[in-house]
Nucleic acid binder design. Structure first.
Length: 111
DNA sequence: CGATTGACGTACG
DNA sequence: TCGTACGCCAATC
């Protein structure tokens, strides 16, 4: 794993997010070493839809647990709906107890 | 080929 | 406490 593309790294991390868990763009960016590269993670997610890989992008939200990218899904409620199916509680665009379901790659993957 | 945008986050005033 | 500015890299116009 030397120079895996930023996008590919994001995919690998997101795909490893366990069910019922969520993480943030910044956490992934930080894990990849690009602290301020959270925007790139967002781009990677956007590309994940066009990618052949199945990326659970609904498990990736901003740092406050807000479903900022739900509009990119087929339906605006699809993202929240999927999260609810995984046992998460979502109110509007906000994940309830986000910190309790937070999955930090730099910790879980024990970099 | 140059400028702008984009699913974010942190810093500063 | 709230609002604005900047940084990161890639894709699109």
């Amino acid at each position: 794993m030397e120079k895996a593309s930023f996008f590919k790294d994001v995919y690998e991390v997101v795909k490893q997010i366990p069910k019922g868990k969520v993480t943030s763009y910044g956490a992934i960016a930080n894990y990849l070493g690009v602290k301020s590269g959270a925007r790139m993670v967002g781009w990677a997610m956007n590309a994940s839809f066009t990618s052949e890989e199945t990326i659970p992008a609904h498990r990736v939200v901003n740092r406050v647990g807000l479903l900022t990218g739900k509009h990119h899904f087929g339906s605006a409620d699809e993202m929240a709906n999927k999260l609810r199916e995984e046992g998460l509680k979502v109110k509007g665009d906000q994940i309830i107890a986000f910190d309790k379901h937070f999955w930090d790659p730099s910790v879980e993957l024990a970099l």
